[in-house]
Design a protein around this nucleic acid. Structure first.
Lengths: 162, 162
DNA sequence: GAGAAACTACTCGGATATCCATTGTCCGAGTTTACCTGG
DNA sequence: CCAGGTAAACTCGGACAATGGATATCCGAGTAGTTTCTC
């Protein structure tokens, strides 16, 4: 079980977008430069975020990306679902209906106990992700970072979003 | 994020092995037949379980697999770790140390806030998996299944483990 | 007839191919801006 | 000097390759039971 690399990139990118001044935007190119990422591939992730409504985009010269809603309305679960898709991690293929002791389909109204067990754990995981917002992440980051570094970041962002 | 198909197979297989009479074993071939799975690939998963100590094996005619410890000492987390490996799902590549506003390595004693957030959710997930034992799964299954089906299974297992 | 050695049948175990999702890249679509031209 | 049109530059967006891990398979390694040969 592993999360796509894109999840990491998308989350970091969202924290940068959250620091944008109002009515400003950052291009995929600029975001990629900020973390030294391959810009074309990062763009792919940003498109997924856009389809999920997490970011908005505008084309043309001076265009780019901005957050689609306030940072306190964006959870880690939103980002994971946008990048990885909504399918559950554990996929039950109903092998209990196979083999010499196969269960009849009529006896399978209840979900498979094993699938249910994994589903329960997965729900707990999703809840834990949903409880953490982009906003709270940024607050932690700001609390830990040095003032000099924050100024550095703000300056770069302002320059690139001009 | 998705769990390997092998996790499903391994868990089902463990529940069957738990139903074995003392001092009996089931071959990979028999287990595969029970669920109509490709035996060679299931064998691969069983090897992973063996390396983790969840099952034991013996070679030669009449050989096969049996549980390595009581079913109440085997959790879903044990099985997932055996099949998927111990690496965390979220891999932090420290991109905060890249780019024009890179953090110096000395400033990275604290883990990245984003990695920490995902790590926290993942820990919750692991706890939820660790709390569910093979034993409790089987109890649920037995509670839900029809007596006829249980007899059917027990008969087949006794026959194949002879 | 008894014992030992060799043989055979059966099973695990690791090395080896194949396939698909993730990763990575490219070029066309669309929009803004700036410049150029004519009035 | 101003307005409109046109072209260029810049950005997103979806279609197109490459790579790595999951999936699937095979054959050698090892063991127990059986058979056979010899004493």
């Amino acid at each position: 079980m592993k999360l796509s690399r894109g999840v990491e990139w998308a989350t970091h990118s969202c924290t940068v977008l959250a620091a944008l001044p109002e009515e400003r935007e950052l291009s995929a190119e600029a975001l990629a430069e900020f973390y030294e990422l391959p810009s074309a591939y990062l763009a792919k992730q940003l498109q997924a975020l856009r389809r999920a409504g997490i970011v908005q985009s505008s084309r043309g010269k001076g265009g780019g990306y901005r957050l689609g809603r306030p940072a306190n309305m964006i959870s880690l679960l939103d980002i994971v679902r946008a990048i990885e898709g909504p399918e559950p991690a554990f996929r039950c293929s109903e092998i209990r209906q196979n083999g010499p002791c196969a269960l009849k389909k009529a006896d399978c109204k209840r979900p498979c106990e094993i699938a249910a067990a994994f589903g329960k754990a997965e729900q707990v995981f999703r809840n834990a992700l949903a409880a953490q917002t982009l906003d709270s992440l940024i607050s932690e980051f700001v609390g830990n970072a040095s003032p000099a570094h924050l100024m550095d970041m703000a300056g770069w962002i302002r320059e690139k979003s001009g």
